[in-house]
Design a protein around this nucleic acid. Structure first.
Lengths: 208, 208
DNA sequence: CTTTTATGAATGAAGG
DNA sequence: CCTTCATTCATAAAAG
C-alpha cells in the first residue's frame, strides 16, 4: 500500500524544516503551519487506521489477526490434504516494533555489534516476536552493507570541484544528506525518490 | 482498535517541540533526533497500516469496500495543492534494446557480472534509456534465479512420479537456530498488536 | 475494469 | 566484512 507509506514519507519531506540561528546554535525549525500540516496528516492516517481496524473487526469475529496475514503468499493451505508437514516459511521477518528498535540501535552508531551486544539486543527484541541472535547478527550485517552500497550508488557524482587542494578531511568525507539511490524515474521527474519501506527513511542522518 | 490512535498520540507527544527565539520571533524547533524519531515512527506506522490493509484484503475475498476505497483514496490534502499527485514509486522497465543487450550478455555465460562488469554494462545501456547499476545488478540476479528455477521445475529430478506442487528445493537446508522455537507469540501488548511473523503465526496456528 | 502474469526490487541468510 | 543466493513482495504489463 504505497498510498500510506509514500504519502506519509512525503509528508515528512514536505515539511522541510528550516534552519535558524539560535544564539549561535543552528537548529531545525518548523513553522506553525508545517506543524499543523504534519499533525493533520497524522490525524488522517490515524483515522484511516481506525476505520480499517473497525472494518476488519467486523469481518473477522474470530480474531485471527495473525493467522490470516498470508495475503500474498503463494501456497495455499489445501496443498497437503494428507497432513504432510510442509511447515511454511521459516525465514525470520522482523516485526514493525523490532524493526524500529533495530533501526534505532543501528543509528546510534554503536556499530560493530559485539557478541555481547547481540545478546542484549536479542533479549530486547524477543518480547516483540520470535527472534534469534543469528537474526540480529545478520540484520546488522545486511543493514550496514546495504547502507554503504546505497551511499556509494547515490554518489556517482564524486566531483569535488572546489577541493582541488585535497583538504585533509578523510573522516568527514562526503556525507550524503539524503538517501537517494540511483533510481530512475521514467517521467524525468526527480522531485522525489522511491521510498518504499519504512527503513528506507533511515539514511537521512549523517552520523557515523 | 485503539493502538493506532494511541501510538500516534504518543508520537505527537514524544516530539514535543521546543521554542527558541529567532531574532525576536519565537519559533517551534525540533532537534535532529526528534525529527528522526518522528520520521521513523511515522514510517513504522505506515508499515503497520500496510500490513493491516494486506491482512484485510486477504480476508475480504469478495473485494468489498475496503479495497476500492483505500485503493483510490487520495487523502493528501497538503502535498499537492494543485491536485496533481506526485509521481509515486515507479520501477525500472528495460527498453527493448536494453533487454536485447542484457540477454546477449547473459547468454555469453558471464554468470557473475562483477562490480566492474556491472559498470560497463550500465554504461552501455545508459544511452538506450534510464538505468542504474542497481537495475543491472537486479536484472542479472533475477535472470539467473529464474533461469535456475525454470530448469529445476522442468526437471522433476530422477524420480518424482507425483507431487506437482511440492517443488521443494533439494538443498532445503533447514538450519534454523536451535532457539527458533523461542517465541513469545500472543503477547497482548499494544505495541505488538498481533502483527507477528508469518512463520510464527503459522507455527502456532498450524493452519486454521 | 478486474484478474493474472511477468518481473523489478527488497531482504534474510549462507559462504568465503 | 563482502558477495551471492533464495524467497518474497509489489507493480507494470498483459489477459479477460
Amino acid at each position: 500500500m504505497e498510498w500510506g507509506k509514500q504519502n506519509i514519507v512525503q509528508v515528512a519531506d514536505e515539511v522541510n524544516i528550516g534552519v535558524v540561528n539560535n544564539g549561535g546554535v543552528f537548529v531545525k525549525v518548523m513553522t506553525d503551519e508545517q506543524i499543523e500540516i504534519l499533525r493533520k496528516q497524522i490525524a488522517v492516517h490515524a483515522a484511516i487506521c481506525e476505520q480499517l481496524v473497525h472494518l476488519h473487526k467486523s469481518l473477522t469475529l474470530q480474531h485471527d489477526l495473525a493467522g490470516a496475514r498470508f495475503g500474498n503468499l503463494y501456497y495455499d493451505p489445501l496443498m497437503t490434504p494428507g497432513g504432510h508437514r510442509i511447515t511454511g516459511r521459516q525465514r525470520w521477518t522482523p516485526t514493525a516494533v523490532q524493526l524500529q528498535i533495530l533501526e534505532r540501535i543501528f543509528d546510534q552508531g554503536n556499530g560493530t555489534p559485539s557478541k555481547q551486544k547481540i545478546k542484549e539486543i536479542t533479549s530486547e527484541l524477543c518480547p516483540h516476536g520470535q527472534i534469534s541472535e543469528t537474526n540480529v547478527y545478520n540484520w546488522f550485517q545486511n543493514r550496514r552493507a546495504r547502507s554503504k552500497r546505497k551511499q556509494q550508488a547515490a554518489t556517482p557524482n564524486t566531483a569535488e570541484p572546489e577541493v582541488e587542494t585535497n583538504v585533509e578531511s578523510p573522516n568527514k568525507k562526503t556525507t550524503i544528506p539524503e538517501d537517494f539511490q540511483t533510481q530512475h524515474v521514467p517521467s524525468s521527474r526527480v522531485e522525489d525518490l522511491g521510498f518504499k519501506n519504512p527503513e528506507a527513511s533511515s539514511a537521512m542522518n549523517s552520523v557515523d
